[in-house]
Computed example of a mutant assay.
Amino acid sequence: MPISPNQGSTAGGTAVTITGTNLGGATAVRFGAKLATITANTPTSVSVTSPSGAGTVGVTVTTPGGTSNPLSYFYIGAPFKSSLSPVSGVTAGGNTVTLTGSGLATATSVSFGANAATPTVLNDGVLTVVVPAGAAAGSVGVTVTTAGGVSNGLSYTYVDAPTLGTPDPASGPASGGTAVTIPGTGLTTTESVTFDGVLAPFNILSDTALVAVTPPGTAGAVDVVVTTSGGSATATDAFTYLAGPGI
């Protein structure tokens, strides 16, 4: 006589179906000592709503013909989330986030705001999930659903990919050292700036501007790349290194 599912929240409320024979006219279904609410009954099945409980209990069905042998049912506590890493990413989604806590072994979904994704459970304390696309930039709540219930309390921030304008000045000596203002959008979370692939020191002025100091380079036009937590943007051939004079 199987039971499905054989686990659920300690708070109760799980829809459970017990199948077998001679189950018609069921008068009681007990989870341990507690009565469940019968929602449907046929000669081969009984559907119930589980009562609250804890640990492992025996489930029995009582009919006019007697009481069945017990089936094991496992009560699972609600999950607990302690950390999320990273806590931000591109609005388009697609990056992998690691979530730690406890009671995560039965996780079936992780929601970022209104958008859900299916996690990969590593163990009871760790899962990973690929972040779904967000509706817009901004912070959303992160919710984990398990057989034990739902947990929230952490947040994730969607960040738009940056855009770049024309650097000012747009040229400087190949020896480097030029302070260049780079306009754009989504620059608040800038993580790196490169000129022709070489990292440059920078200072964020606002979400729409930053200043970078050019590293030494080779004469000619080079790409400027700004990388933020929302992604990368490239200004192609946007800065020109000038060769020094020779005599």
Rank of each mutant, 00 (worst) to 15 (best):
P132L: 09
T39I: 15
G101A: 12
Y156E: 03
L210F: 00
G66C: 07
A15T: 15
Y156R: 08
V150Q: 10
I182D: 00
V159P: 00
G32L: 13
L122V: 14
S139T: 15
G220P: 09
G94K: 07
F31Y: 13
G101T: 09
L242V: 09
G231T: 12
G113H: 06
S82K: 03
T145Y: 05
L99G: 01
G165A: 04
A200Y: 03
A212G: 07
G177F: 11
G20H: 00
P215L: 13
G77R: 11
T234K: 12
T96G: 00
S83N: 05
G217R: 00
S175G: 03
T44D: 06
T146E: 12
A135H: 02
T10I: 09
Y75S: 06
G231H: 06
D207Y: 12
P162T: 14
L104S: 06
S88D: 06
S68M: 08
T62G: 02
T21D: 11
T56D: 00
T143E: 01
G53Y: 03
P215S: 02
S68H: 08
I38F: 01
G246E: 08
A36P: 04
S47N: 09
V61P: 11
T60D: 00
S45C: 12
A161Q: 14
A170V: 07
G25E: 11
T218Q: 10
V46L: 05
T118W: 09
L122H: 00
A135D: 07
S151A: 15
G217V: 04
P51M: 12
T39Q: 08
A92R: 04
S4C: 08
T98E: 07
F31I: 11
S83H: 05
G125R: 08
L122N: 02
D207I: 09
D168F: 11
A92S: 11
V97R: 07
T166K: 10
T118Y: 10
A107Y: 01
G153N: 08
V159R: 12
S45Y: 11
T120Q: 04
V142F: 05
L23D: 01
S45T: 13
V222N: 01
V225M: 10
S111Y: 02
T42K: 06
N95I: 15
T21N: 11
P215I: 15
G172D: 03
F112N: 04
S139L: 13
I204V: 15
